[in-house]
Design a protein around this nucleic acid. Structure first.
Length: 549
RNA sequence: GCGCCAGUAGCUCAGCUGGAUAGAGCACCGGACUUCUAAUCCGACGGUCGCAGGUUCGAAUCCUGCCUGGCGCGCCA
């Protein structure tokens, strides 16, 4: 029996108890959940429903709990129900009901964990979106890992998701980048407001390779701008692809300008009455929608602001049919939230249409000291640097196992030197151990058969493992709904721990000279189910599930 | 000054949509390899959940104020 099924049984038992006691059934929630108690004395699952609703109907929680327990006791698969404390319901499943989940998981395979908590949502998820003026840096690396994991988690929850990367290729930063390239190509020092770092020299050299006469052309700056940005695009895309982060759409800001979408956006906002002229500039009255100051769309010199492009881009996304726009930004951009939300409201969208997720910064430490980073000096730590130091799996895992609300201190030396301390190995090792068992089983000619006696999975370690496995779909659903993919990593560690403990206490394969027992066969199902879930969980994080380590 | 995030074991962090005795990894100490991978497991140690109030059967979790740290408050992008 799955926790979801049990929760439904609890709810219907509560409904029945209400009827028996003559209570007002409208006080009941439409759904409930059961918890997995830490203390084994509290049963396999616990419900607090009696505590939650007793007050509403003015009845004694313990008495209500008793009524629910009486109903639950007769449910098939429930071995016992205890009432504890102020009215907790502690439910114990019989081993057969608990053990049946292994078969369901194996049957579902890669689909296990899929749920429909976001069914029907059409989501545009934008993340990374760094300027094409340099390689993806440490912060961008975090979003590349977290955003990609979130996209996978939402898809696993039934949402239709397009992951998107926005290239700001139309702004003055790109001009500075072009100036820097040109200067370096001529052998001149980097301009005062330019970009430094070895990659600038490399790009400049590559531009010259592709366009040998670039410096002699009519407009060298333009040649370097176009070719340089193009090369930077390629490099960023390759880097992200190698990192396992896929984007469905790479969107160029330039496209908005070329198609006249900024004018269209301005016109639309004007018609809606949210635009005004002041000091020679054109403004959007964002303060009407909660922003702390109004924002300029078109400067007094007639040029567009970056914000105007944001408006056009927002509208573009909406017109592409997305009903939910999720935008991941670094904490250094959280000041944008107010104006971005104002755009959404100015166009008349409901609150919640645009959802902005703010992720805190990644600090890099070397020898326990912060690495000073400067874009101008070119001392930025890039995605490639981190991957080179600790590998793709460790990087993705290290960046996705923490809440995005927390800043990360990533100690390069620690992750390099003490690789074994990395929790990703703990999880991957569990998967490798399982693969080993299954490999050995094959070599021994052992087949787990078409079915097994689930009641034989009665060891406490087996019980714990089964409960952990059963939790996965709910974890995926909550990770999607809360936009918190780190829950998947934490769950994977929890599951890996349950497996390691099981493995330690429960022999699966027969010892030499002995035959496979029925218990061993049931355990093979359990092991295979664990393999499926670990692989699925790691898959949601974009981390590999190795068969050998 | 205003806003966002954080403050939980020596360290790094989970837990926060109110639930039972607050958890994990690392570090340190002591155990378990003739046995499916010891990259594992078991035990011990370790806490005024930043501080002070409030809400209630119950608060790390919700509310208010304060303290500390990070980030941000352009007709820059």
């Amino acid at each position: 029996m799955t926790p979801e099924t049990l929760a439904e049984k609890v709810l219907s038992a509560t409904r029945a108890a209400f009827a028996d006691l003559g209570l007002d059934a409208t006080a009941l929630p439409t759904e409930t959940a059961v918890e997995r108690p830490r203390n084994p004395e509290h049963g396999d699952y616990a419900s607090t429903i009696a505590l939650q609703v007793a007050k509403k109907v003015g009845t004694n929680p313990r008495a209500l709990a008793q009524g629910i327990a009486d109903q639950l006791a007769s449910v098939d698969g429930v071995a016992g129900v205890d009432i504890a404390g102020p009215g907790f319901l502690n439910i114990t499943l019989d081993a057969a009901a608990a053990g049946a989940i292994a078969e369901q998981i194996v049957a579902a395979g890669t689909a296990y964990g899929y749920n429909e908590s976001m069914k029907g949502a059409h989501v545009n998820l934008e993340f990374v979106s760094a300027n094409p003026t340099g390689p993806v840096h440490a912060g961008g690396t975090r979003w590349a890992a977290v955003g990609d994991a979130l996209a996978r988690v939402m898809r696993a929850s039934g949402a239709k998701v397009a992951s998107e990367y926005y290239f700001n290729d139309a702004g003055s930063q790109v001009d500075r980048f072009a100036n820097s390239l040109l200067a370096r190509a001529k052998g001149e020092p980097t301009p005062e407001d330019g970009y430094g770092g070895g990659y600038v020299d490399e790009i400049a050299a590559e531009v010259l390779t592709r366009h040998p006469d670039a410096l002699e052309s009519d407009d060298p700056q333009e040649v370097f701008r176009t070719a340089g940005v193009e090369l930077m695009f390629e490099q960023i895309k390759t880097t992200l692809a190698d990192f396992g982060t896929h984007f469905d759409v790479y969107f160029n800001e330039k496209e908005l300008h070329d198609k006249g979408e900024l004018d269209a956006a301005l016109e639309r906002l004007s018609k809606l009455g949210h635009v005004f002229e002041a000091d020679g500039a054109t403004w959007l009255r964002t303060t009407e929608f909660g922003d702390d100051k109004d924002r300029v769309l078109k400067k007094s010199d007639g040029s567009w602001t970056y914000f105007a492009a944001d408006c056009a881009y927002y509208l573009d996304k909406r017109e592409r049919g997305f009903d939910k726009l999720v935008l991941m930004l670094g904490a250094d951009h959280h000041g944008y939230v107010g104006r971005m939300q104002a755009i959404s409201r100015a166009y008349g969208d409901e609150p919640g249409t645009l959802e902005i997720l703010i992720g805190q910064m990644v600090n890099l430490l070397r020898d326990g000291k912060p690495v000073r980073m400067s874009k101008r000096m070119g001392t930025v730590v890039t995605l490639n640097d981190i991957v080179e130091a600790i590998g793709v799996d460790a990087t993705r895992y290290a960046l996705t196992r923490y809440s995005a609300d927390s800043s990360i201190d990533l100690d390069i030396d620690l992750w390099t030197k003490h690789g074994n301390d990395n929790p990703v190995y703990y999880v991957q090792y569990a998967h490798a151990r399982i693969s080993g068992v299954l490999r050995n089983a094959t070599e021994l000619g052992i087949d787990k058969g078409d079915t097994y006696d689930a009641s034989l999975l009665s060891h406490p370690r087996e019980n714990d493992l089964l409960k952990a496995l059963a939790e996965f779909p709910a974890v995926v659903a909550s990770a999607a709904e809360l936009r918190e993919p780190h829950r998947i990593a934490r769950y994977a560690e929890d599951l890996a721990g349950a497996y390691h403990r099981f493995y330690n206490d429960c022999r699966v394969l027969p010892y030499p000279g002995e035959a496979l027992t029925e218990t061993g066969r049931a355990r093979l199902w359990l092991v295979d189910a664990t393999r499926v879930v670990l692989a699925n969980a790691l898959g949601l994080l974009g981390v590999s599930a190795p068969e050998r380590m």
